[in-house]
Design a protein around this nucleic acid. Sequence first.
DNA 1: CTATTATCCTCGGGACGCGAGCTTATTGAG
DNA 2: CTCAATAAGCTCGCGTCCCGAGGATAATAG
Lengths: 403, 403
Amino acid sequence: MLNSAVAKGGRAGDARWRTASAVLAEVRRAPGVTRAEVAHRLRLSTGSSTEITARLRELRLLVEVPAVPRGRGRPTGVLRPHPSGPLVLLIELRHDDWRADLATLDGELRAFGAGRHGGGVDGQGGGRSDGPEPVLAVLGQLIARARERLGGRLRAVSLAVAATVGDGRLVDASSLGWPPVDLGTLTDLPLLIGNDATLAGVAEARSGAARGSRAGLHLLVEAGIGGSLTVDGRPVSGATGAAGEYGHLPFGDRALRCHCGAAGCWELEVNGIALARHLGEPRPTSPRRYTVEVLRRDSAAARAAVTATATALGAGIAGLVNLHDPDVVTLGGLAGPLRAGAPAEFTSAYLAGLMAFRRAEPPPVLDASHGEHGARHGAAAVGLDHITTEAALAGWAEEQAAH
Amino acid sequence: MLNSAVAKGGRAGDARWRTASAVLAEVRRAPGVTRAEVAHRLRLSTGSSTEITARLRELRLLVEVPAVPRGRGRPTGVLRPHPSGPLVLLIELRHDDWRADLATLDGELRAFGAGRHGGGVDGQGGGRSDGPEPVLAVLGQLIARARERLGGRLRAVSLAVAATVGDGRLVDASSLGWPPVDLGTLTDLPLLIGNDATLAGVAEARSGAARGSRAGLHLLVEAGIGGSLTVDGRPVSGATGAAGEYGHLPFGDRALRCHCGAAGCWELEVNGIALARHLGEPRPTSPRRYTVEVLRRDSAAARAAVTATATALGAGIAGLVNLHDPDVVTLGGLAGPLRAGAPAEFTSAYLAGLMAFRRAEPPPVLDASHGEHGARHGAAAVGLDHITTEAALAGWAEEQAAH
DNA sequence: CTATTATCCTCGGGACGCGAGCTTATTGAG
DNA sequence: CTCAATAAGCTCGCGTCCCGAGGATAATAG
């Protein structure tokens, strides 16, 4: 018999879904894990394992499919997302395009649409900004279509945006060429909004190059520098969610003013505009494309410019390692290519900037492994975290009981 | 009847002490809280409240004392630490002295000893360092004495050290004039080791000026700059516990080399050595005393030097607010007096360094409220957290059942 | 075909917390 | 002084979770 639909308030009501939530987390942490393996890792008795598996199956959260036998003994089953199970819609919003996916409980993504829009101040979509309204209208329709098609299976929408996010709003969307925007009106589903660089860091920590790290520092260089610190795979996002503006630490020359309103910002030493300054060339309209182009050049001047930015990158990272004490650093976007453009100088700047006691075992600086998909995988992680909380599972169970 | 002493493995064994742990946390969060109030906050039914209070009393964790009546209705009781309940020994180790306290479950401290030692490189104890051995011997004896006197009531030792801590070692104890030291041999009790500035931040977040903050940034200026970011009162301590070296972020002039091995460290712009540099005076042997002395001077040159350091402090804090997104910043040690020495310049540097969108509601920068006691209160918080975990309570209960 | 191995299922039982109904202690209005 | 109102605490039956022992089951190795 299924649990009664009577929701218990207080502590018992939450504790009820505690183990279920842990099982789902395990399934996501290692997709394709067997039921026996999960029981072992969570130290569940076989009786509890039987019970909880049955519950999760009845609730249309998981199914058990036969596993490939691996030796003697009674075969066990692989836990997979239920074909009628809950889903999260992810949307990544970048300065001139967007892309949507659906995520299942095991963290797998399936494309659900993509499009281009007017583009930001120096976007490739024509250099013209339409403002947020048309884009938000399109995304609102997308969410409505997903709800129509998926009904109650759609449990949350998780947004990864190339802008500074605070309390569910885009508090600084200048990279999109937009004024501050409130996104709370997009849907009445649970809406999770995160910065793309922050979420890419989450993806690296959960299933990328920083997998298994206790503290992971991710730095993403595009037009600016974003990033995040993750602790056991969870982002440290500050009071409002706006943490991670690594590019606006004053590591640079105070004489240089930044578009953010401050001066001496680190990103002014690292991005394409910095390269152009070193080369005495005009400020590029697309710093990203310009950087890629300079990295391809074969001139002493270009190499010197790349070396200067790679050095600034390495020195700043060293300071952040002093601060955060991560066990691994991951580089996303152009950070990897910039380092590759002057690896020796990057490394010596990195080591020189570390406190002496850290030089014996400096944290490795790895290229990110999710590439272009990091933000969406991170958004999936955050969204799935949300729909597998004890409270959210209680809600799902109630709806399932009501048919 | 008490719970059977048979420890259940796995999840049930932990869940068993979950509510007990929550009740103890509540008692510590608001010392003097009534039983009815705790039940209300944890959304416990009166039945559960009766049951759990009886259990905690039988286990010698809490006692109930009559509360002053506050109006109609049956009077309730105040929950207090049991007179035979568990204790944590705290030791704060500074560059030329140490101080020990005992903490009860409600977070109250009681002095348990103090002493002086050789002192660090520029300590006031004579400028001479005896190395760690004699000090560690004294502390070892102190711990042994506490165990002798308190028996099984002493559950953990929590150390706050003015040094960089990593994985239970002092990985950089140059501020004490010591080489790296392993402290794991001090006792076989659970030993928690933290940096003093980090722990002072914890104290501010739990019961000080940053109380109730979601994300609190604490900065402590002494000879250098330490600090911590706390999230819901818990410190973000990095992979090994060495996070918080704010003074070694490269916010300063790259031409200045730091004793830490890097260059351009922020603390070189803020501490007493920076003041002396601005004033063209010789490097002080005690930067702390020198700073206090300069703050008292009434000369234009001294004011200019203080203004320069206060400005560097404000500008750096702004960068860190951009990065961490705290809802409150607290200043410990000399940071408050330095700001007070040039408040207008501090504030304008702070505001100028913020990203424009933050200037509408910049996080308040408050003086820390724990003063000299911050590190010990933070060490108490961390130690009591440790002994009120579900696993630790299970251990305590087992010993109580065995008489 | 059989022993071995690994896993799954069943079932009784303990622990927790809930909620209903009742009891107790205090205040304040009549 | 009495008694309703108020606020808590206590008791007890119940549902849920997980455990653990014992037995069943499904594969492989020989």
